[in-house]
C-alpha cells in the first residue's frame, strides 16, 4: 500500500515476466483497467507497483487453428462478441461475453484475461469457459505452461495478476454440441443473480451428454454433469426439465446471500437458470438471448 506507486509499461512479454520476477509484494498487473481502477478509485486497493501489460501486442487478437480457437488475453470483449471465428467455433462464448454488463466502456476496454484473472463469482465468461472445457496458457519466471481452465480454478497458487501473466485462452469446438446461456439479473445494469452455461450433445431427439456450469449462485462455479447423466438416453421433456432444475439447485453447496438475493432464492434460481440454459440449447431458434 503506497501513496506514491510506481508504474511500468514493459514492451514485451519477456520484459514483463522479468520485471514481475524481480519485484516483491504490492504488485498488480493491469491491462484494460476495468477491474483494477474501480478498486483503486474506491480506495479498496492501493498497489505499490502497476505493471501495465496493455501495450504487449503479442497478447492481443483472435485466431483459429482447425477446430481450435485461440484468443490473446488482452482481447477486449467487444472484439470477441463480433468475431467470425468465435461465432463459428464458440458461439456460447460470444453470447456470454455479450451478456456482460458495464456498458460500452467495459466492453471496449475490458479484456478476457482480466475477466478471468479477477475470478469474480458473478462474472459471465467463466461459466462458458468451464462448460466448453477451455484451456489457458500462462507465463511466469518458471516458463510457459498450458492447463485446463478447470485445473486453474482448482489451483490457488497460480500467481496470476501478481507473479504470472495469463497469455492465451483456447477453446476447441465440438461441432455436434449445442449450447445455451441464461443470465438472471435484477435490472439490466445489475450483476447476475445466477447464470448458467449449458453444452449438450444429442442424437436426433435423444440427449447423449449434458454439461451445465452455474455461476453467480455460489462463491465458486458449480459444474454439473455426472449428476445429470441419468437424463441422457432419452428425449428432453418437461419432467427432464424439472429434474435438471432440482439436481442443479441441489448442486449448489453454500449459496451466495447478498444484495442480489438471499441464499434460498439463489439456490432455487441456480436450478431455474440451468433449466433455461438447457432449453435454450435445445431450441436454438429462440435460445440465444432468452
Amino acid at each position: 500500500m503506497s501513496l506514491y506507486p510506481s508504474y511500468a509499461r514493459p514492451r514485451s512479454l519477456q520484459q514483463a515476466v522479468d520485471l514481475l520476477s524481480g519485484l516483491q509484494g504490492g504488485v498488480v498487473v493491469i491491462a484494460g483497467g476495468q477491474e483494477i481502477l474501480p478498486s483503486v478509485n474506491y480506495g479498496v486497493l492501493m498497489p505499490d507497483v502497476y505493471v501495465d501489460i496493455g501495450g504487449i501486442e503479442e497478447l492481443i487478437g483472435i485466431s483459429s487453428v482447425g477446430d481450435e480457437l485461440v484468443m490473446g488475453a488482452l482481447t477486449v470483449h467487444r472484439d470477441i462478441q463480433g468475431h467470425a471465428d468465435v461465432q463459428r467455433l464458440a458461439p456460447l462464448l460470444a453470447q456470454s461475453v455479450s451478456a456482460m454488463g458495464g456498458g460500452w466502456q467495459v466492453h471496449n476496454r475490458g479484456t478476457i484475461g482480466g475477466n478471468i484473472v479477477a475470478m469474480h463469482p458473478l462474472y459471465d465468461i467463466a461459466p462458458s469457459l468451464l462448460a466448453l472445457q477451455a484451456d489457458i496458457e500462462l507465463i511466469d519466471a518458471a516458463g510457459t505452461r498450458r492447463l485446463s481452465f478447470a485445473d486453474l480454478l482448482a489451483d490457488s497458487s497460480h500467481g496470476l495478476g501478481t507473479k504470472a501473466i495469463l497469455t492465451r485462452v483456447f477453446v476447441t469446438a465440438s461441432p455436434q454440441s449445442s449450447w445455451g446461456y441464461y443470465k438472471l439479473k435484477n435490472t439490466s445494469g445489475a450483476y447476475g443473480s445466477a447464470n448458467a452455461a449449458a453444452v449438450l450433445e444429442t442424437e436426433g431427439e435423444i440427449l447423449t451428454a449434458i454439461r451445465v456450469v452455474i455461476g453467480a449462485a455460489a462463491d465458486q462455479l458449480t459444474l454439473v454433469s455426472d449428476a445429470l447423466a441419468g437424463l441422457t438416453g432419452a428425449a428432453y421433456d418437461a419432467a427432464a426439465g424439472a429434474e435438471i432444475e432440482r439436481i442443479c439447485a441441489q448442486a449448489i453447496g453454500t449459496p451466495l446471500s447478498d444484495h442480489q438475493g438471499d441464499g434460498t432464492w439463489r439456490r432455487a434460481m441456480a436450478g431455474v437458470v440451468a433449466r433455461r440454459a438447457v432449453e435454450a440449447a435445445l431450441l436454438p431458434a429462440t435460445g440465444p438471448d432468452s
Binding site: 435490472t187 439490466s188 445494469g189 445489475a190 450483476y191
Partner: peptide
C-alpha cells in the same frame, strides 16, 4: 450494507 451502485440497483433506460 449498501455502499455502491452494485448494491443500490436503480433501473437503467432499458428497464
Amino acid at each position: 450494507l449498501t455502499r455502491s451502485f452494485m448494491d443500490y440497483v436503480m433501473p437503467r433506460m432499458s428497464d
